[in-house]
């Protein structure tokens, strides 16, 4: 009764979409890993980046590469500024303060972006042909392929960064224990800023990939809601976890949309990942690859 061809198509699509989720989740994981802060505005980061690229190309008539460069620079600057103005004063405060601050930020961005860039949906064309690549029974849309490849590239780059580079090792030290890191002469606050800057880079590329897929408007920020199942499944502080979680969420939501939607009348795509996440929270809250934390009085 299972249609294997159909399932294969769903799974391939799920993998591609899942890797694109991972790209956004990476930004979340980077910030959490280095600074213990939670970014509920990740989706809005992606939206902002999408608006910058689309704004540069459509409104200012800039070439594609310039738009991407400006978005990268803009998002890094935004990450730095945000850390300095909003998040640094909140260091050491209860977790709800940081959560609410990023929710507040998300609200500001969602209100501000349409004011500056207009409310209508803008297409964000990638400079590649949109002819799908056909491999036997499955077709691969090039836009999603680019997103997936970007995501895999970042996985490799960040793994190298955290394992080998001086900065990455310092960042891991900061994540592990801030006081000891300070005693070792690491400028903790600078690494906090760098983590937010990196999140900005990831979001800029996320904005490019997702903006090309969905078009750029305020609803682009809703992608951020999918970040939570991804990071909970994979583990909040694991880069590999972000990739694996993204794959699981992508495949599950596509299978749910393919097989359950006809039965219950739609919408399972947004629903299934959360059910999966709740189950995960019950049995293994720290995720597949996450670090288990021990709490002491």
């Amino acid at each position: 009764m299972l249609d294997w061809g159909f399932t294969l198509v769903l799974v391939t699509n799920g993998v591609l979409i899942g890797l694109m989720y991972s790209l956004i989740a990476l930004g979340f994981v980077l910030v959490y890993k280095a600074t213990d802060a939670i970014n509920f505005a990740q989706g809005e980061f992606v939206m902002l980046a999408g608006f910058i690229i689309a704004g540069m190309i459509v409104l200012a008539g800039a070439p594609f590469w310039l738009g991407v460069v400006v978005a990268l620079a803009g998002m890094v600057a935004f990450g730095f500024g945000l850390e300095r103005i909003v998040l640094r004063p909140l260091i050491g405060r209860p977790i709800i303060a940081v959560i609410m601050a990023t929710i507040g930020l998300a609200t500001v961005l969602r209100g501000a972006a349409p004011l500056f860039f207009g409310a209508e949906t803008r297409a964000l064309p990638l400079p590649i042909s949109d002819e799908p690549i056909v491999l036997g029974a499955i077709t691969l849309p090039p836009g999603q392929l680019v997103g997936a490849l970007l995501s895999l590239g970042f996985l490799a780059a960040f793994t190298w960064f955290f394992m080998k580079s001086r900065m990455g090792v310092a960042m891991r030290a900061v994540a592990d224990n801030q006081q000891v890191a300070m005693a070792m002469g690491i400028h903790v606050e600078r690494y906090f800023a760098i983590a937010w800057g990196l999140a900005g880079i990831v979001s800029a590329l996320g904005g490019l990939a997702w903006g090309a897929l969905l078009g750029v408007d305020v609803h682009l920020a809703l992608v951020g809601l999918k970040v939570f199942p991804v990071v909970i499944l994979g583990g909040l502080d694991s880069i590999l976890g972000a990739i694996v979680g993204g794959l699981i969420v992508g495949v599950v939501e596509n299978l749910a949309a393919g097989y359950l939607d006809p039965l219950v009348g739609g919408g399972t795509k947004d629903f299934a990942p959360y059910v999966l996440m709740i189950v995960m929270l019950m049995i293994r809250p720290y995720g597949i690859f996450g670090k288990r934390r021990i709490e002491r009085v």
């Binding site: 507040g104 500001v108 209100g111 501000a112 004011l115 409310a119």
Partner: peptide, 24 residues
């Protein structure tokens, strides 16, 4: 009329941040 909802979001989010940072 288009501005008001967006402005509301901005003022609202901004106030949350301001209160958290300055007057927790």
């Amino acid at each position: 009329n288009n501005l008001i909802p967006n402005l509301r979001l901005m003022v609202f989010g901004g106030l949350i941040i301001v209160f958290l940072v300055l007057e927790p």
